[in-house]
Design a protein around this nucleic acid. Structure first.
Lengths: 347, 347
DNA sequence: TTGAAAGCGCTAACAA
DNA sequence: TTGTTAGCGCTTTCAA
């Protein structure tokens, strides 16, 4: 057996010897709740400090059959939408004595599968799943095995615990805002339709287009293959090349909207004078863009925090009812949208 | 003892019973390397699969005294510089059978301390440290305790394993590029001088300013309190408000440069016609900016990968010599820099 | 109030 | 080639 190369850790036995008590007493002294003479506890604590004793989480986990660790699957940490969500989850987890293990799936199914296996093998007590593409089959399986998990910013048929926003309603509101500004030709760069967010936002957009009697031209609808700036750029160029180009574009998320912004500028058009742009999520940078982006504000930090709280409550043992938290999302109107000018809309 | 609420896992004993062998035989069958009759191994493997057996990493870790897990401390996952580094480390770790646990320190000392404690308590086998502010004292302590770690994109007195780029040389090269374009008044927005990267890049800039005989005006030097876009914006505004403003600005990283870009635009000046801008790191977005940013290209993915390889080699047991890998970084010249116009430089 | 003993799930030295 | 046994470091039930 190959031992660790660094200093061997001190164990509970070392402390027991130093404090002249039994190992079980050390355990009692260091984990509050047990009856113990005050003087004994003090002696143990002092010995532990002196020896720089750090309890082994591994041994503890084996004995307790829980690791006090949560796993979190995120599709893309490079997407600025996620860090605040992670931060929210982290803060709650840490304050409840849980550690959070972060896994970046890159929206690649094999990576997701790998991480899911690794995390379960490492006995995380529960899972926060923010990766948008994970198939319903995987989720159903987790459910069937009664493995505790919470879906963040996405939903799925088999899930009993989710934290989301109302994508349909907010997307409809975004398009409604454009309609109110007089836009008739509104383009939508949809997110991947294999994701619930992409799907629901597209549905909301379509709904609003019908409700407000906007142009229902199929050419105004285009699906991005990823929630990325590059894809936003690519798709916006397609929309701008249309014979009758849209006077406004609704991107399924902010990165897509940023790509659209760039494409519009590259086409020597102005935002919002020639084309209005709306995004979704309200990443921190949205406000700093030129022009500041009108977008649906999603309470990211709160979303992560709420999900962690939900998961930890579920782990608490007391059975909690199926909950589908829907956090409020509201449109943040900024300078990237303006009244449709009658001149625009024609190539 | 509160047991996990989900299905109890199958153990090695379950598999042994099903395959009618001793538990130790199951262990041998599932971990290759041991001598074993082929038929026995097959029987065990089949039983394991049938029972959906997943070995407990916790028990394994306790027995083996190693967790096959690496911890990684990152100052700010929202900074696009880090994801590729993480990705590189992750890929190497996974391919070597290690899991990577990511911790976001937000450059807050208490968070660093917390995570360091948590990670060591959880017995990670080694640490990748990319957080720039961690004090030398902490590092010295890790060193003294012979705990394996590798510094990524930073150095420190006590560290024997580091992967960096030559910040001084590259910063000097960046300023040299500006000098070659005829700029005499070059402003530097330095990173926090409490970080090695901020310090070394500022030194390099100062060196080049002397070497090329550029204006050594103290007002042209300003220290950002963070490597962020906001700070870049704030500091650039100060530089632009000078009586004799710089004709070029060198930002200590790309986010700072992006903030400067924005400040310049807000001041109704043009890049690069009125002010040239250079960044450092070459984040993915640098090329997509308007105008594309001239910046020092740092091989981010390779940096993470190299660090992970180094750490894993160190864990391999065979003592490896002190190594300070310095990866090549080269200036990527793009459209944000141009010849100094004689008109500029005066408010 | 404290000690003794057992066992969480796994692996490896030793024996057969 | 496979079984037996012990023990990794901890907590907890039971006994004193």
């Amino acid at each position: 057996m190959r031992r660790a190369a660094h200093q061997p850790r001190r164990t509970i036995a070392d402390v027991a010897r130093a404090a002249r008590v039994h190992p079980s007493t050390v355990s009692r002294a260091l984990n509050d709740g047990a009856v113990l003479r005050d003087e004994t506890r003090k002696r143990v604590v002092r010995a532990a400090r002196r020896l720089d004793y750090r309890p082994s989480a591994v041994a503890r986990s084996l004995r307790l059959q829980r690791t006090l660790t949560l796993g979190m699957l995120v599709p893309d940490i490079a997407n600025p939408f996620f860090p605040p969500i992670i931060r929210g989850a982290e803060d709650v987890a840490l304050s409840c004595g849980y550690a959070l293990v972060l896994c970046n799936t890159e929206d690649v199914p094999e990576r997701e599968a790998t991480y899911l296996r690794v995390l379960r093998q490492r006995q995380v007590d529960g899972l926060l799943i923010a990766s948008s593409r994970m198939s319903d089959a995987v989720i159903t399986r987790l459910r069937r095995e009664r493995f505790p998990f919470v879906l963040v910013n996405r939903s799925a048929r088999g899930a009993e615990l989710t934290v989301t926003v109302d994508n349909r309603r907010s997307a409809a509101e975004a398009v409604g805002h454009l309609a109110a500004l007089g836009h008739r030709r509104v383009g939508h760069i949809a997110g991947p339709q294999s994701t619930t967010t992409g799907l629901e936002r597209a549905e909301g957009a379509r709904l609003a287009i019908g409700r407000h009697g906007l142009a229902a031209d199929a050419a105004l609808w285009i699906e991005a293959t990823a929630f990325s700036e590059e894809e936003g750029y690519r798709c916006a160029r397609v929309l701008l090349a249309l014979g009758r180009r849209p006077t406004a574009i609704f991107g399924a998320n902010d990165l897509i909207a940023v790509g659209a912004l760039r494409a519009i500028r590259d086409a020597r058009l102005r935002v919002p004078e020639d084309v209005s742009v709306v995004g979704f999520n309200d990443i921190r940078q949205a406000e700093l863009l030129e022009p500041p982006l009108t977008t649906v504000h999603v309470p990211q930090y709160e979303m992560g925090a709420a999900a962690a709280r939900l998961l930890i409550a579920r782990l608490g043992g007391d059975p909690i009812p199926e909950s589908h938290l829907v956090l409020p999302a509201t449109l943040a109107v900024r300078a990237s949208t303006a009244r449709a000018s009658s001149a625009a809309g024609v190539a």
